[in-house]
Design a protein around this nucleic acid. Structure first.
Lengths: 224, 224
DNA sequence: TAGATTGTTAATCGATTAACAATC
DNA sequence: TAGATTGTTAATCGATTAACAATC
C-alpha cells in the first residue's frame, strides 16, 4: 500500500502467466511473503511444506497460495507438498531478485547498528556495503566489518557500488535533506525508518516503516 | 496480510457503516495508513489536507480515500479538503484506538534501545512501560527513564500494567521460548522483530516485521 | 491401497477507478 | 463568481473461497 508502482495487466486465472508481464501488486506482495516464511522454514531444516502450513504462517488462504503458485508452474507434489528449497528458488526467479543487491545505510546510532549487525537483509540477498553518519565522532568507527563514513562521500559510494537502495535510520529532522541528496545521487528506493513524510520525485519509491500503525491495526481486531 | 483476524461483514458502498460492525481488513489497514500520514502532517503544522495530497503520500487512490472516509460521515469541506486535526480524531474513534495502551519491550540491545527511545510508538498512543532482558549485565541499567528488568518479572508486569502488546527485539534463537512465556502470561499481540517463525495459539496475533521482504517487493517494481 | 495434498473450476464478494454533480 | 474538492454513482476488475477431481 505504500508504493508507487505500475499496475499488473495479467488477467486472473489464466493459468501460466506470461514471463514478460508484470505481476499485480497483490501477487508480488504475497510471493514476497511466502518467500519470507520459506526462508525461515529452510533455516530450521524443513524440507517440504504444504499450502496449509504456509497459510498458517502467512495468514493467506491456502487455496490462494496454491493458485498463486500454480500460475507459474507445477511446483508441488500431490499428497506431499512443496519442496522448500526449490520453491525459494522459483519465487526468487519470479520476483527477479535472485541476485545480490548492495544497499547503503544512513545513521550509525542504535537503530543503524542494529540493522547493520543483523542478518535480516543478508538472508534475502541484500548486502550493506556502506554505513554513513554526519556525526564526526562516529565517522571512522567500525560497525562489524564496516567503517562509518561521512555523508559527504555519498555520491562516490553510490556510483562505485551501484547502489539503488538506501536505508534511512536517521532522526526525522534530517530525513528530508538526506532524501534530497539521495535522489540527486541517483538512488531509486528509499527505505525510511524515521517518521518523516518524504517528498521525492515520482521515479523514486519511498517505503516508510510504521510499526505503530501496524500495531494500531492489530489492536483494532483485538478490541472488536 | 499477516494477521489472524475475523472478516468484516459490511457490504461495500452502503454509505454509513453501522457502528457495531467490524471494519474489513482492507478498510482498517487503509485507515491506519491515513492516520500515519495525518499524524506526521500535523507535526509539520499542516491544517487541511485534500484527498489528492493524502493519495500522494499513501499511494492509495484519492477516490478510494474519499469513499473510505465518507462511509463514516461527512468529514471534508468541498473546495477545501479535510481538517487534519479533526480527521485524526475521527479515524482514531473509528479504529477505537483513541486511548493509551501500555506495551512491554523485550530485548535491551541496540534495537530495543532504539525502539524505547524513539517516539514512533508514543505518537500513536502506545507507551513503553517496561523493558526486559535476560542478560544480567543489562538488568538494572537504564534506557531513558525505564530500568531494564529481568524476564522473570514478566508475569507481574503484564498483570499490573494490563499489557496486551509485547514487542520482541530479541535474537531469533530466543524468540519462540519468550513467545510461549508471553502467551502463558496472557499477552494477545506479539510484534516480532526477529526473523523467527513463531508458533502461537489462534487467539494470539503475531506480526513479524520483515524489512527485507518489503525491499524485495519494492525492488521487483523497480527492476521491471 | 488409503490418506493427503495439489491444481483448478466456478461462484461470490470487495476493491478500484473514472466521472461528475454538489457545494464550499 | 470561478476554481477546487468532496461525496457518490456505476461499471469493471481482481481477490477470495469452497469444493473436488487428479494424483502422489
Amino acid at each position: 500500500m505504500s508504493y508507487t508502482v505500475g499496475r499488473g495487466t495479467e488477467s486472473a486465472g489464466t493459468g501460466l502467466e506470461k514471463p514478460g508481464e508484470k505481476l499485480s501488486l497483490g501477487v508480488a506482495a504475497r510471493l514476497s511473503r511466502y518467500l519470507q516464511v520459506l526462508t525461515q522454514a529452510r533455516k530450521i531444516g524443513k524440507e517440504t511444506i504444504s499450502s496449509q502450513e504456509l497459510a498458517d504462517y502467512t495468514h493467506v488462504n491456502s487455496t490462494q497460495i496454491r493458485r498463486d503458485l500454480s500460475g507459474f508452474g507445477k511446483f508441488g507434489k500431490r499428497g506431499v507438498g512443496y519442496n522448500v528449497d526449490s520453491l525459494v528458488s522459483q519465487i526468487r526467479k519470479i520476483l527477479r531478485t535472485a541476485g545480490q543487491h548492495n544497499i547503503a545505510l544512513f545513521g550509525a546510532g542504535h537503530l543503524g547498528t542494529a540493522i547493520a549487525t543483523s542478518d535480516i537483509f543478508a538472508d534475502h540477498g541484500f548486502r550493506v556495503v556502506a554505513v554513513f553518519d554526519v556525526d564526526r565522532d562516529r565517522v571512522g568507527t567500525r560497525i562489524g566489518t564496516l567503517e562509518v563514513r561521512h555523508n559527504s562521500e555519498l555520491q562516490i559510494v553510490v556510483d562505485e557500488q551501484e547502489i539503488v537502495v538506501a536505508v534511512l535510520a536517521v532522526p526525522s529532522a534530517a530525513a528530508q535533506t538526506l532524501a534530497d541528496e539521495l535522489v540527486t545521487a541517483g538512488v531509486k528506493i528509499i527505505f525510511n525508518y524515521s517518521d518523516a513524510l518524504l517528498q521525492v520525485p515520482p521515479e523514486v519509491t519511498v517505503h516508510t516503516s510504521s510499526p505503530a500503525v501496524d500495531l494500531l491495526y492489530a489492536l483494532y481486531f483485538y478490541l472488536t
